[in-house]
Amino acid sequence: MGDDPVGLLDVLLGLAVVGVAGTALTARRRMGAVVSFLVLGVLLAVLWSRLGAPDVALAEAAIGTGVTGALFVDAVTRGPPETRGAPAARPAGPVPWQGVRAALPGGLAAVLLGAGLGTAFAGAVLAGTAPGGLTGQVLGRMDAAGVEHPVSAVLLNFRSYDTLLEVVVLFVAVLSVTATLGEERPRHAPPSARAATLVWFCRVLAPVLVLVAAWVLLAGSDRPGGAFQSGAVLAGALILMDTAGLGPGPDHGRLLRAALVVGPAAFLVVAAGGLVVEGEWLALDPAWAGGVIVALETLLALSIGVALTVVFLALGRGRVSPP
């Protein structure tokens, strides 16, 4: 792909991404910005697929658009009504010169910054420093990896230290979020009674989503998928159940705490196990690397799903029995 001249699809996709990002960043009311952000996420998922990164596209659709979108929408609908209501009156006239003049310094700065960065990036590509990257090295070691999909092998075997720290970051985020829990806040608009349709839909769909999550998890061994995307689908199922009133409540605190901890704890056990057996932190013997990775991914997916759900619930719910 590196030397082909850019095609129409790529030009349109790139322009669409920049345009929607501009709309998301300059919208006058919050809900418009958030909706544009959701559209941006979908376009980015298409973009990742176009660049040959289906794992990233899955993660962007599930985590970047799904969970982040749910968080943003929930934050906006719980926010003060005046921030998301009708925008302020525009100045009269066909072209709002006041608005344009106010936006000029920012726009100029954005153009300069973008041009500078673009020249720097394009120069790096044209200079062609090490175009091979690490592909050769990774593919050369795949038989010792335990899984057949290169990205999963990198995530959970070759660079598992990064993944361990990433899981810890998520864990710390959950801790900082639950440290700020207060009493339950009602929404600004009185909620309608829980529609029977929604409850039925959630009852029917939640098992399907759990099945999809399990499939994405197990597919990560030899094709795009993996623990993070699976965890995000699981979080989606739990958030959906929460909107129907069927989700985790205050008396599920102990269960949630256990589910949150089991992922990072299992990862630490595997890491220490590597230290004991192989003499190296996080080392995996190729003989049982496959089984260990699958088991670890399962527990990780559970923890990630619960962690994302707890962050969502903490936005407005009351006590979720903080860990």
Partner: peptide, 14 residues
């Protein structure tokens, strides 16, 4: 502002 409509996001894109 209603309970159900806003949070439908995570189900479908995932």
């Amino acid at each position: 502002g209603a309970t159900g409509g806003a949070a439908e996001g995570p189900g479908t894109p995932g």
